[in-house]
Nucleic acid binder design. Structure first.
Length: 276
DNA sequence: GACCAGGTCTCTG
DNA sequence: CAGAGACATGGT
């Protein structure tokens, strides 16, 4: 996508390949906020305010380079959508969510946040996440960063109990200890099968959460997370016999290859917002 | 007051 | 390996 950088702003023409609301609310991140002029999104220690003015999209932010990467602006989503539209079953979902892009989240916070997401709803996930951010580094007057694993590992179990996270509190506590003792950067270049095995070895991380972490936290687009919504989608549009969720994931992954994660987001977004 | 939410863990056959 | 039940909490 063509864009220009002016000081702390990324600016480009309003177009069909970028829709802030779709990108932020399609279930790949949790720290976004509706504002008077548009949206605010937080990733790591960076903040962006997205608005539209005179046919331009303006991303005013703490770090333009980070948000060019975060919003994957150098990837050609027009071509991706064009290619994927050869599948009839995807046309409606792509048309509905045409402005979606897969964001590149911060790995560590994605791990914590998707552990919270299991058997939970997005509103409550956000509430718990923001509660955790009370102990995060200050970004500005209004927002804090999500706390680091090291910071979390320094807090007593009692603190986790009071998050309102329910039975997931022990998962968060254990994961904080675990992540504070390793170097996540060493995981970035692991082959996907090894990365997956490592992730599901974490308590509270199963096949679905591991897939989400790989897709949103490691940008492994060959992953196909299957949750309640995707199971419904499978039954309605792809049914090829009774399967468990991991089997459905493998089946669709086989079908869509490296496009899996992107396909999944179009379908998930469409299913969630249209109820199926 | 069930039922569900971007599931996972543990135990069992 | 697949199936069943438990699991905290908050919203319809």
């Amino acid at each position: 996508m063509k864009y220009t950088i002016e000081e702390n702003k990324i600016i480009f023409d309003k177009n069909d390949d970028f829709d802030a609301e779709s990108i932020l609310t399609c279930g790949q991140m949790f720290r976004y906020f509706k504002t008077d002029s548009g949206w605010t999104v937080i990733t790591g220690h960076e903040r962006a305010n997205i608005s539209e003015k005179n046919g331009k999209v303006v991303i005013e932010c703490t770090n333009p380079q980070r948000f060019i990467d975060f919003f994957d602006l150098d990837t050609d989503y027009a071509k991706i959508k064009s290619d994927l539209s050869s599948y009839d079953v995807l046309k409606e979902a792509i048309s509905y969510g045409k402005g979606i892009r897969i964001a590149k989240g911060e790995t560590e916070e994605i791990i914590f946040q998707f552990i919270i997401s299991q058997n939970n709803n997005i509103k409550r996930i956000q509430k718990i996440v923001e509660k955790m951010c009370e102990v995060g580094d200050k970004i500005d007057e209004k927002y804090n960063a999500f706390p680091s694993a090291k910071k979390l590992a320094s807090l007593p179990f009692e603190w986790f109990k009071n998050l309102g996270a329910g039975y997931r509190d022990v998962f968060l506590y254990d994961t904080a200890k675990l992540l504070s003792e390793i170097d996540l950067d060493e995981k970035i270049n692991l082959p996907s099968d090894e990365l997956y095995k490592w992730l599901i070895s974490i308590k509270g991380v199963g096949p679905k959460v591991a897939s989400c972490i790989m897709l949103f936290g490691f940008h492994r687009t060959e992953c196909f997370p299957v949750d309640t919504w995707m199971e419904k989608v499978y039954r309605k549009y792809f049914f090829a016999g009774e399967m468990t969720r991991p089997q459905i994931s493998a089946f669709l992954q086989e079908k869509f290859g490296v496009m899996s994660g992107i396909v999944q987001q179009y379908l998930f977004n469409f299913a969630m917002h249209n109820g199926l």
